[in-house]
């Protein structure tokens, strides 16, 4: 029954995809020459004016573009013309570095906050104030102090990944069940061993949930950050293609960004399953 449900759902997805692509293709294709026109004038006006063909590329154009990128993802023809693979690699590297730094800061700090009600109360106002700030608002400050576009983007990723991990770690640690802590206490387990053998495994599902939220946000923010700082990265690529009026490349980028985001999320979903304990 379960397998057949999955099968039927996949089938339905496929139908919807085909229908969508079909409508899209029809909507953007022209109807042939609409009016008799001076050929020179027609050439000047372009297809969209003369044949009714939309400027928005259809699925077939997109497929061609994707194929083009797949054939040569890592070419490098100077500052403004790099392969999609290279641009993605820049973005992934920035997210990876910023996110890892955030993890190194957020998880120990979250432990501290979760274990000490005093630190919790003392740091709460700062967290409450800084958390709602759009990470991009930090950009000018980062550019001014760091003086490097790439590093500033990493800093913005760091800032936006920090909060979910920090808050979830603190919450997970603070809600470690008293009965488990009491087990450790009656066994005279020291604080360090207790942190690693009781609190960490008990809080791990909540911590990894925070990490999953963070990676999602980081991947959202990197596109915007790279549009701002320019130079390299998938965000810059999208902006550059908009300036080139190459909508086929913009749509291709959207698909690729979605795909990478999905893979990142699935990786953390797997980590989540690893640390979750059934009761």
């Amino acid at each position: 029954m379960k397998a057949s449900l999955r099968l039927r759902a996949s089938f339905l997805s496929l139908i919807m995809l085909v229908a969508f692509l079909g409508v899209w293709q029809i909507a953007v294709s022209g109807v042939g020459k609409t009016a008799a026109m001076d050929p020179e004038y027609a050439a000047m006006m372009g297809d969209s004016a003369t044949t009714g063909k939309s400027a928005i590329p259809g699925p077939i154009d997109i497929a061609e573009t994707i194929w083009g990128h797949l054939k040569d993802p890592f070419y490098d023809h100077g500052a403004n013309d790099k392969g999609l693979g290279i641009q993605l690699a820049y973005s992934i590297a920035r997210v990876g570095i910023g996110y890892t730094l955030a993890m190194i800061v957020a998880i120990p700090t979250g432990f501290l906050i979760g274990m000490s009600p005093l630190m919790n109360k003392a740091l709460d106002p700062f967290i409450q104030l800084l958390r709602p700030v759009s990470p991009l608002a930090w950009m000018p400050l980062a550019l001014y102090t760091i003086k490097d576009a790439g590093l500033s983007a990493i800093f913005v990723i760091f800032i936006c990944s920090l909060w979910p991990m920090l808050i979830n770690t603190a919450f997970g640690v603070a809600s470690t069940r008293t009965e488990w802590l009491n087990v450790a206490r009656t066994l005279e387990v020291g604080p360090l061993r207790r942190a690693f053998t009781i609190v960490l495994p008990a809080a791990a599902p909540t911590i990894v949930t925070g990490m999953r939220i963070s990676i999602g946000i980081a991947w959202l923010v990197i596109v915007a950050a790279e549009m701002l700082v320019g130079g390299t990265g998938i965000g810059y690529f999208v902006w550059n293609q908009w300036n080139n009026l190459s909508l086929a490349n913009v749509i291709t980028s959207i698909l690729v960004i979605g795909l990478v985001g999905m893979v990142l999320d699935q990786l953390l979903a797997r980590a989540q399953r690893l640390v979750t304990f059934p009761e």
Binding site: E179, W180, N182, V183, R185, T186, L187, E188, T197, I198, P201, A202, F277, P278, E279
Partner: peptide, 29 residues
């Protein structure tokens, strides 16, 4: 003066550590 390994407690709820196996729970003690 505080808990001690000389006094073992069997709690009202079983309070086993769910992320450990049966033998892992006993081995922890």
């Amino acid at each position: 003066d505080g808990p001690s390994l000389d006094r073992a407690v069997i709690f009202q709820g079983h309070s086993l550590l769910p992320w450990r196996t049966v033998i892992g729970n006993v081995a922890y003690a």
